[in-house]
Simulated scan of single mutants.
Amino acid sequence: MDKKKKKALVIGGATLLLLIGLSIGAGLYMLDFSLRPVNRGKDMEGSMAYMRQTYPHIVPWIDSLTRCQALRDTFITAPDGIRMHAFYVRAPQPTAHTAVIVHGYTDNAIRMFHIGYLYNRSLGYNILLPDLRYAGLTEGNAIQMGWLDRKDVMQWIDAAPHIFGDSIRTVVHGISMGAATTMMLSGETLPDYVRCFVEDCGYTSVWDQFEKELKNLFHLPAFPLLYVTEWICQLQNGWNFHEASALNQIKKCHKPMLFIHGEKDDFVPTRMVYQLYEAKPQPKALWIVPETDHAHSYRNYPEAYTEKVKAFVMPCLSNETEIGN
C-alpha cells in the first residue's frame, strides 16, 4: 500500500472516530436535556404557589385539608431501592371509589391537585397522587417518560388497598407524561379493582415525542442523533424509546378508557390521540376539547371536564359492573 492510501485510511479512520465521538457526546447531551432537565417538579413550594394562582377555586379545599391534617404523605420502596412518595386523601364519606392520579413531565403530585380536587371534592373519592421518579419527594436520577413509571404506579396500585381498604374500585387518571404512563400501565395485568382509565393528552411513544421535539427545537432529523441517544438511554436506564410505547400497550387493554385531548395541542400533537383511540379496543370514549392547548383542558373547562369524567367513570366503578382486563 502506497503512502497516499495509508494517509487516506488514517484520515478516514480519524474522521470516523471523531464523528462517533461527536455523536456520543451529542447523545449524552440530548439525554440529559430530555431526562434530567432543570426540574420544577422538585420545587414543592413553587408548585403549590403555582396551583394556588392557576386554580384559585381549589384553594379552600387545599387549606381545609391542611388544617384538618387530611392531606397525608406515604412512602414505599421500589424493587431497585428507590424511595417513592405519594400524597393521599380519604374521601369525605367512606367509599370504595378511589382515583390514582399521575402527573406529567417536570411536574409533581402537587401540580395534579386540580385533578385531586375533581375526584375528592367534586366526586367524593379517595385520592392517591404519586410523585414519579426525579420529581417531588421521590428519589431517582432521571425522568423515565412513563415506561419505568408504569411499574412504580402498579406498585402504588398494590399499596392502595392497604391505605383505603380492601374493597376499593379504582380509576387511574394521568395528564401528559402521566397519561402516557397510564396507557403504558393499561397494557399490563392489573388487579380486578382497577376498573378504568382516563388519559389526558398523552403521547403515542417516547420515540414519536422525542422525534417531534428534535425537529421542532433543533431542526434535526431522527438519524443519527436520536438513534444514538436511544442507545445511551438503553445503557443508562434499561429501556429504549421504541419500547416505551403507549400505542402498543393500549392494544392489550380491554378495560374502559376515556381519551381527552386539546384541539390546539402542539406539544403532544392532537393527531396522536386519534392514533391511540383507534388502536384501543372497546370500551372507549373520546373528547376533543375546543380551543385548548396542552394539558389545560380542566383549566379551560372545569365544569365540563368534571362532568365528562364523572359520566365515564361512575358506571365503571359501580359494584354491578363486571369488566375484563
Rank of each mutant, 00 (worst) to 15 (best):
M84A: 04
E213A: 13
T138F: 12
Q275G: 11
Y277H: 15
N300A: 06
Y134G: 01
G146L: 05
M112G: 00
N325S: 13
I323E: 02
W207K: 09
D208E: 15
E199D: 08
S245M: 09
M44L: 15
Q236W: 10
A295S: 12
V289L: 03
Y193A: 03
F312S: 01
Y29G: 12
K310G: 01
T229Y: 05
G136E: 07
S34V: 11
C201A: 06
M84R: 06
L214P: 03
I20V: 15
C196V: 02
L217Y: 11
A179V: 01
A159K: 06
V206S: 14
L217C: 02
G146I: 07
P221F: 11
F164V: 05
K255P: 07
G174E: 03
N141H: 06
M84N: 00
D107Q: 15
K5G: 02
G238T: 07
G41E: 01
R67D: 10
P256D: 00
D63A: 13
G41Y: 07
M177L: 04
K151S: 07
Y105S: 03
Q249F: 02
L129K: 03
P302G: 07
A295K: 03
Y55L: 07
I288P: 07
T170L: 15
I127C: 07
V172E: 01
M1V: 10
E322K: 12
L317P: 06
R169S: 13
V289S: 01
T292S: 10
F197V: 04
L19A: 15
F164R: 02
Q144V: 08
M30A: 13
S64F: 00
K284V: 10
P37S: 08
F210R: 14
A159D: 01
G202F: 06
T306K: 05
Y119H: 12
